[in-house]
């Protein structure tokens, strides 16, 4: 049984409108029928462009907001069906690490106070590690415990946030763009730290990122989202080496390459990133898809198995036709 599982999860938000109801309200379908499973000790990356619903999905998986429909299961429990004491107990086993550590930290609390705070909120959780051990675990000098967030560098702050997430010894962590705000040389340090902690502590995680280059080095599997749907899912190396969905192909082709002479084979995506308040009919990707067929305008493809441990939502893959760019 997977540790965390989303079953047909949707999340709709009502946006816009005015107090005088002169402007009609729109419904944003941030997540539209997502199915995924994360096993113990496994890291699943969720990638996609802004507005694809990846951060909303992360919060749904943590039970931080209820889904509009569908279920989120954690260790066999439906999060929506739990009373608050039971939910609190489960919450101690889940943590969230997000992009901006300065916003995540309280400027008036010392580093030492912040990182033990989760064990104060969840007194029953895990074994309490001493502050010095928590700091050492994330590569920080225990002498920093008395410092305040503004006295630290960006990389040190993100290490403090990660140390705090580790304090309850969680089984599941959602990382939401944890290295996006960092300089390249420091980003590599945090990637290394996350990899080391995954190995040493064995927690399961969901790693939300727009940067496919980072994902390649931290995740076991990857789910590609487009307009609230997971359009492709599979082992990260297999998906990046041979993407099946035209959107995944375009996303990978757009990543700047370092190697000289490795100019990318362009899959030029026309048009703008999509608007989740106006989802196209049929396959939501069809207006930008370079290989869309007539049927794609009316038919929303289901995600089906495509090779070992892989799945994809595209009628061209399902029908066996090939459209991979010449290698």
């Amino acid at each position: 049984m997977p540790l965390v599982e989303a079953q047909g999860v949707t999340k709709h938000f009502r946006v816009g409108g005015s107090a005088f109801a002169t402007i009609s309200r729109a419904t944003v379908k941030a997540v539209a029928g997502a199915d995924l499973a994360v096993d113990r000790g496994e890291t699943l990356a969720v990638v996609g462009e802004s507005g694809c619903g990846k951060s909303t999905l992360g919060r749904l998986l943590l039970g931080l907001m209820p889904p509009s429909s569908g279920r989120v299961m954690f260790d066999g429990h439906d999060l929506a069906g739990l009373g608050s004491p039971a939910l609190r107990r489960l919450r101690a086993r889940m943590q969230l690490v997000f992009q901006n550590p300065l916003q995540a930290l309280d400027p008036r609390m010392s580093v030492g106070e912040q990182i033990v705070e989760p064990t104060v909120i969840h007194p029953a959780a895990g074994n309490r590690l001493p502050v010095a051990d928590l700091l050492a675990q994330v590569g920080l000098d225990p002498a920093l415990a008395g410092r305040f967030p503004h006295q630290l560098s960006g990389g040190q702050r993100q290490r403090v946030v990660i140390a705090r997430a580790m304090a309850t010894q969680p089984d599941f962590i959602v990382f939401d763009e944890p290295v996006s705000a960092l300089d390249v040389s420091v980003q590599a340090q945090i990637i290394r730290l996350i990899r080391d902690l995954q190995t040493a502590r064995g927690f399961a995680s969901v790693f939300i990122s727009h940067d496919l280059r980072v994902v390649r080095h931290v995740a076991d599997r990857v789910a590609v989202m487009y307009l609230g749907r997971i359009v492709e899912e599979g082992p990260v190396r297999a998906v990046f080496a041979e993407p099946l969905h035209p959107y995944t192909q375009a996303l990978i082709a757009a990543v700047p390459r370092l190697a000289p002479g490795m100019r990318r084979v362009r899959v030029v995506l026309k048009g703008e990133p999509p608007n989740p308040a106006a989802i196209p009919s049929g396959c939501p990707f069809h207006p930008r898809c370079p290989v869309a067929e007539y049927d794609c305008r009316t038919h929303a493809p289901a995600r089906v198995a495509a090779g070992p441990a892989r799945s994809v939502a595209c009628i061209r893959v399902a029908s066996g036709s090939t459209f991979l760019p010449a290698a």
């Binding site: 390249v184 040389s185 980003q187 590599a188 990637i191 496919l212 390649r216 390459r257 190697a259």
Partner: peptide
């Protein structure tokens, strides 16, 4: 710099 085609993890 992490590379999408490379197995080598980025070196900090």
């Amino acid at each position: 710099m992490p590379d999408i085609t490379d197995d080598m993890p980025p070196v900090a």
